[in-house]
């Protein structure tokens, strides 16, 4: 029965992906992509990975979807003006078909072979995690892996995020900083909903962060929820990014800096890089996680808000056509 459900779910996932790939209309492809993210979150639940489901629902379906829709809207706002381009959008060029076909089939066969001849694991990672989790300072195995056993990954990940947002800031046109941009439209209903939902969203984010030490949840999911809340706020017409720009920039680097400081300062006591002293591991991990949540949320939000606003352009365009 469960397998039947999984097979249907997997096929639905595949069909949604096919919909993304084959739909003529870009907006439709993006909507299909969001549906794909939601189905993937369900798949993670079925794979016994609730952490991934949380992250996928907030990031894969939520944030990525918003980013893509924003990009498509930006494109359409500008495309309307030079419509001779429209015809070029969806066609595939007259290029040889053999390259895509060979790469597709080759990848498929190779990966199937890799799955068929999967090597036996020499060590059992779940056993190792279980044996050492008492010393890690947290009870939830995934948090233990992320913040203790493989904390290098997490440290480098937050560094990668920081680099991404720095590059995004560097690419931002300087003109965007001017103040005479039209204020975003205030919609009373959206405004009201945001005002009521925002405390709940922040609370959920903090709860997910707190819960991460003993059950599914943690810095990444909490950060994603925080980012979603900020994006929601921005879309509802509150100009979050203009209220506290300098504070925002400090927050971007805070997670990485705190993590690095902790990682290095333990070396004073003669320990290797990135190990926690006994007895303090739990507190240190939670402290780092809290800072990481803040930074991840702000970084993901900044990656969204670095995009030039375009809603005005869309409005003008519609108005022009209506005349």
């Amino acid at each position: 029965m469960n397998l039947a459900f999984d097979i249907v779910l997997g096929l639905a996932l595949l069909l949604t992906a096919l919909g993304v790939f084959s739909s003529k209309d870009l907006f439709r492809a993006v909507v299909m992509f969001i549906a794909f993210g939601l189905l993937l979150a369900l798949v993670w639940v079925r794979l016994d990975a609730p952490d991934l489901a949380l992250a996928e629902a907030a990031i894969g379906a939520g944030l990525t979807g918003v980013l893509m829709i924003d990009a498509v809207a930006h494109l359409s706002a500008n495309t309307l003006q030079n419509d001779q381009r429209d015809d070029q959008y969806d066609h595939s060029p007259k290029r040889p078909l053999w390259l895509p076909v060979i790469s597709c089939v080759g990848l498929f066969v190779l990966l199937l072979g890799a799955i068929r001849f999967r090597p036996e694991a020499s060590v059992s990672l779940p056993d190792m995690v279980r044996d050492n989790i008492a010393e890690s300072g947290v009870e939830h195995p995934i948090t233990a892996v992320l913040l203790n056993f493989r904390s290098y990954d997490t440290l480098l990940e937050i560094a990668v995020l920081l680099v991404a947002v720095v590059v995004a800031m560097a690419l931002k046109p300087a003109a965007e900083d001017r103040v005479h941009q039209p204020p975003p439209a205030h919609d009373p209903i959206l405004h009201g909903l945001t005002a009521r939902l925002l405390p709940a969203m922040l609370l959920v984010g903090m709860y997910v962060l707190w819960a991460g030490s003993y059950m599914p949840g943690g810095a990444f999911q909490g950060g994603a929820i925080l980012a979603a809340a900020l994006v929601f706020l921005q879309l509802a017409g509150f100009a979050v990014d203009r209220y506290a720009a300098s504070l925002l920039r400090l927050g971007l680097a805070l997670g990485f800096l705190v993590f690095l400081t902790v990682a290095v300062s333990v070396m004073i006591g003669g320990r290797p890089f990135l190990t926690y002293p006994e007895g303090f591991a739990g507190q240190l991990i939670f402290f780092i996680e809290a800072m990481l949540t803040l930074s991840i949320g702000l970084i993901l939000f900044s990656l969204f808000s670095q995009n030039p606003p375009h809603s005005g352009a869309v409005g003008h365009q519609g108005a022009n056509h209506d005349q």
Binding site: D25, L26, D83, D90, Q317, H321
Partner: peptide, 8 residues
Amino acid sequence: DPTNERGP
């Protein structure tokens, strides 16, 4: 429709 639309 964002890409193909040419106005109302």
